[in-house]
């Protein structure tokens, strides 16, 4: 029976995607080792503390305390991989024309609400799915933009005199650190949603991120081919 092969992700994109995963994991982990030394961030409403970054059980569980030097060493070595991989991804996306599938267009923001409603089973209208649907366009573009934000705030923290302009753009040194932290929380949230969506999307979708293509049975194609 004839099958349909759908070529989805280019080889370079797949490599950069999978390289980014362990590198970003190491960046987040070493970032937590650094953050522990001055763990001042909290989410508060009035006088009520909703979230403390981080509670003691969290530090104990992940063996975080007293590892500032180690965290800085890993962070400032692996930042180079994160930077180079991200830069190559952006350049490749621009020059290969892949940005056409990735960047949101003027319909994407409205349509992404329809995707969310559909995914939450609140709407039965199936949204348009090409390589990426509207919500994917918005989410994936945003995460790249966040990567740029991490780079900017990172350099603003790392070299606040030599790259004083970056520190100024971020609204100062302390603000740069806060944004850097918030972006990291953003990655973790992105990761959770991303993994759930990949699990729900199924095998063929996952295969496309590894092998590059989907293989689908198309019964109606068979009749056409006859």
């Amino acid at each position: 029976m004839p099958k349909k092969i759908i070529f989805k992700h280019l080889l370079a994109i797949r490599w950069m995607h999978w390289i980014n995963f362990p590198v970003l994991t190491i960046m987040i982990w070493s970032g937590m080792l650094i953050y522990w030394a001055n763990d001042v961030y909290q989410v508060k409403i009035g006088n009520n503390t909703l979230i403390t970054f981080f509670p003691n059980w969290f530090y104990t569980y992940f063996h975080i305390p007293y590892r500032l030097a180690e965290g800085m060493a890993y962070h400032f070595v692996f930042m180079r991989l994160f930077f180079i991989n991200g830069l190559l991804y952006v350049l490749y996306t621009i020059f290969s024309g892949e940005w056409r599938y990735l960047l949101p267009n003027r319909h994407s923001f409205k349509e992404s609400f329809q995707v969310v409603l559909y995914d939450l089973h609140l709407s039965k209208i199936k949204p348009l799915q090409t390589k990426y649907n509207a919500a994917q366009r918005v989410a994936y573009s945003m995460v790249i933009f966040m990567g740029f934000g991490s780079l900017l705030t990172g350099i603003a923290i790392y070299k606040p005199v030599q790259f004083g302009w970056a520190t100024a753009i971020c609204g100062g040194y302390a603000a740069a650190r806060t944004i850097h932290f918030i972006l990291t929380v953003g990655y973790v949230l992105f990761f959770v949603i991303h993994v759930v969506q990949v699990l729900l999307a199924g095998w063929n979708n996952f295969r496309a991120m590894v092998a590059g293509f989907e293989i689908t049975e198309e019964k109606d194609i068979a009749t056409e081919a006859d």
Partner: peptide, 9 residues
């Protein structure tokens, strides 16, 4: 996206 129809082989 590029798509092709292929036979069993």
């Amino acid at each position: 996206m590029k798509e092709i129809i292929v036979d069993d082989k």
